[in-house]
Design a binder for these strands. Sequence first.
DNA 1: CTGCCTATTGGACCGGTGGACAGGGTCGCC
DNA 2: GGCGACCCTGTCCACCGGTCCAATAGGCAG
Lengths: 206, 206
Amino acid sequence: MTTHLFISPRAQPLPRWQHAFPDATLAARPGARRADVVWWMPPQFDASALDALIADLPAGTPLVVLSSEPSQADAMQALAAGARAYCHAYATPAMLQQVAVVVLNGGLWLGPELMSTVMGVASKQLLADVDPAAATRLDALTPRERAVAIEVAHGATNKEVARRLDITERTVKAHLSAVFEKLGVRDRLQLVLELKQPPASVDRAA
Amino acid sequence: MTTHLFISPRAQPLPRWQHAFPDATLAARPGARRADVVWWMPPQFDASALDALIADLPAGTPLVVLSSEPSQADAMQALAAGARAYCHAYATPAMLQQVAVVVLNGGLWLGPELMSTVMGVASKQLLADVDPAAATRLDALTPRERAVAIEVAHGATNKEVARRLDITERTVKAHLSAVFEKLGVRDRLQLVLELKQPPASVDRAA
DNA sequence: CTGCCTATTGGACCGGTGGACAGGGTCGCC
DNA sequence: GGCGACCCTGTCCACCGGTCCAATAGGCAG
């Protein structure tokens, strides 16, 4: 049985929530509650509150952000913070259940329009970003090392990498040390510079 | 009953496919077949073939791209073309079923690593549209702050910056804190990314 | 003169980082 | 079976990075 936790300042859960998930619990404020899916409906969108909420959630717990007035900007902030879905608070029970199914199975749910916007931008960016120079130098690395290197190249801390790759921070360090060694850089910052610089000029050509 | 169509050049379906979806049909070549979910496993990744395949699919039919050797670059191309999921061809039947559930409910399935990569990049890009703070540049800084920022952007440590500018390491920290604050970044790594990833212009008109 | 900004520095504090020891496991290859 | 990769985890420790608490001093606008 999957458990659902709705976090909302409102006194009563929306009827459609109960309709969709009769056994769901409701909390007025975020807490270190455990649940299979956490639904968050803030009175008004607050990025920092969302960050704090996600930080407190057990790793891997999917968060769905609900909004009575969805906006693209809010959705983006929600996704940036790590939410796995963003949808209308007054969506039909059937749709809420669909969303739950998606996030419970490791998916991302955004609704058609947002989805296409996100995918368009993301794929364009990543195609231009990961493909070119990086590949040539990264192929000396093992797949796992490469994954860590790419995360770091995007600015992630060890803790964040660990969370995203679902490994220990210690393991991240291990891979990272190997990466530094293989690429001949002294720290993560040099790694970023190495991967961002086009391969053209190898400055120690002297 | 949901119908599954596997498109693969191989003569026999993989056992795990049959295990996951006993009623699935197999086709060697793309065609205008109808199905609730289409799974495509190309002998090797081919972006144009993928485009053609998606064009022939009934609108709204989710496509899952399978790969026996997943790569981030291929995944990006698949997503750009409109695939709704990208996963390992030898994933467990349970995972394949999860993927099916996700895409059938309007979700996107990428696996944890790719997912975080995509979301990170996409949200950063889209937020830049919405949040002008992130687009702020060096001209908002005082001359001294700018000098420090540039040194750091070249990969210098605080100690190195201090030596080059002939000031105390402590002072470097002070300037840096101001820089972080003004540019809205959390640390030197984000600063480097901000300065390396230049144009604030997001050509999202398309 | 009175703020206000800028540049500079000090000390204390804490979390992030990277190296140096460890070890555990799986897999494929000889 | 051994041997070497790759992946994952652990502890200890020195160092770096960033923030918070200050303080001093010059320039500039009101």
